[in-house]
Write a protein that binds this DNA or RNA. Structure first.
Lengths: 243, 243
DNA sequence: AGAAGAAACTGATCCACGGCAGGTTTGACG
DNA sequence: CGTCAAACCTGCCGTGGATCAGTTTCTTCT
């Protein structure tokens, strides 16, 4: 196995044990490397003919703007995630995509992807598995916004991030580096930044979690899981399901 | 073309012009018909080895329950929609599925589906298109819950339903038959049933829309679209994109 | 080192929506 | 035709979170 795995390879490795050949096919998808600066939209709502990417480094967010200027961040993408797969199917993008940090990403042609799937079906399985897990997280997010109050909602979100980052080796249940501002957190959780600030203070005072200077530190993991009613099956996975 | 099309065939026909052969393949997926009574859960959270279905008749909802007894309805499925596709990938269901009305559905084996896709690639395109459109609606729903207030949120939801039902010929911009109770509406929109009731009254008094006795009547379609900031691209489609 | 601009934080006030407590209509069923 | 259960509707009051209007602390740039 290669020593310098891409985040995607690492992520998929959690679901399916990948052979050297499969890893090579994966690596071949990473030609066509691109860099993007933070803050400048990668994709605009309504834009057409969009490429898909695999995120190699950095964080990105997908959001929608409303008439009154508010926005809702639908999801964050972290290393190992696909970017704008849907905008390829749909001929026109239905949301904006903005890099939060400087970003490294590999452009993927749908033809390459289909090609890769055809030669290595297990890879297709792994990608589908990973994608459906990500989609499940969006659903959890929806449930959170609809029915949990600010404190539980924020706790749940932090655990989602922990789970996802752990899959690509960028986090542990002790914490992770987090480039999000409180404004972004607010727009993701459907709250005001003022209120997020207060919620973070409570989490800190209750000695559950600290979010400071780009670093999330988890003081009481089990306490958080309990508070947020976080589904442990997102965490408990040990080793690939398919060998 | 056959005279008695399934809702799924009708839905896909909006995206891809289907040949007689393709329609036949579609029809062949509808062997293995099943009926389900209203109110009895079709799938429980945590249940394993679940089949996928194509909904032929009736309405279904997917929801999650929280510890405190509240629930969040994530999505409704209407005729022509797939059911539990994700529970097949994931070995265990992460949400409940409950028929709202008596339901007719066809069980689909993943092998049959893959077979169908292999023989008729255009069908695969159509299904993917339809699926990504449905997913886009879930995203809109999330945005709604996060950033729109009750009135706009409810209006938006009604328009989502209108758009989806229109695709399968069960609705027009004049209205549609709607078996949802105000409680379900509340659980879908992240509101209390009391508040939904008030919102519906306002919509009625403003002569935008009436929801009574299982019937939604739209009085001012454009007014609703404007109020809800509804994305017209979900509506404006005239005829298949792929001929 | 100082200026300028983000981002983080805080207190006071407001309001959209929830919760409760009840009343009324509708429909199913014997 | 009477009974019972859902669903629907309404008024009142409580509250979680928004909004406003700042101050303070970090970053970054010169």
């Amino acid at each position: 196995m290669s020593t310098a795995q891409s985040p995607l390879a690492r992520k998929l490795g959690n679901f399916v044990a990948l052979s050297d050949g499969e890893l090579e096919v994966l690596a071949s998808l990473h030609r066509r490397r691109r860099s993007f600066a933070a803050g400048r939209d990668l994709v605009h709502q309504g834009q057409t003919h969009q490429a898909a990417y695999i995120l190699a480094e950095g964080w990105v967010c997908s959001y929608k703007l409303l008439r009154d200027g508010t926005r809702q961040i639908v999801d964050f993408q972290i290393p190992g995630d696909f970017l704008g797969l849907r905008s390829v199917l749909f001929r026109t993008a239905d949301h904006n995509i903005e890099p939060i940090t400087p970003v490294e990403a590999s452009e993927v042609l749908d033809s390459d992807l289909l090609q890769a799937f055809a030669t290595t079906p297990r890879l297709a399985t792994a990608v589908l598995w990973a994608a459906s897990r990500d989609e499940a997280m969006v659903v959890e997010h929806l449930v959170s916004i609809g029915r949990r109050r600010a404190l539980e909602r924020t706790a749940h979100f932090m655990l989602e991030l922990t789970a996802r980052l752990t899959l690509v080796g960028r986090g542990t249940r002790e914490g992770f580096a987090c480039p999000l501002s409180q404004y972004m957190l607010a727009d993701a959780l459907g709250l005001s930044s003022v209120h997020i600030n207060r919620v973070l203070r409570v989490l800190r005072e209750d000695e559950l979690l600290t979010f400071q200077q780009g670093q999330v530190t988890i003081h009481d993991f089990d306490g958080l899981v309990d508070l947020a009613e976080f589904d442990r099956s997102y965490l408990d996975q040990e080793g690939p399901l398919l060998r």
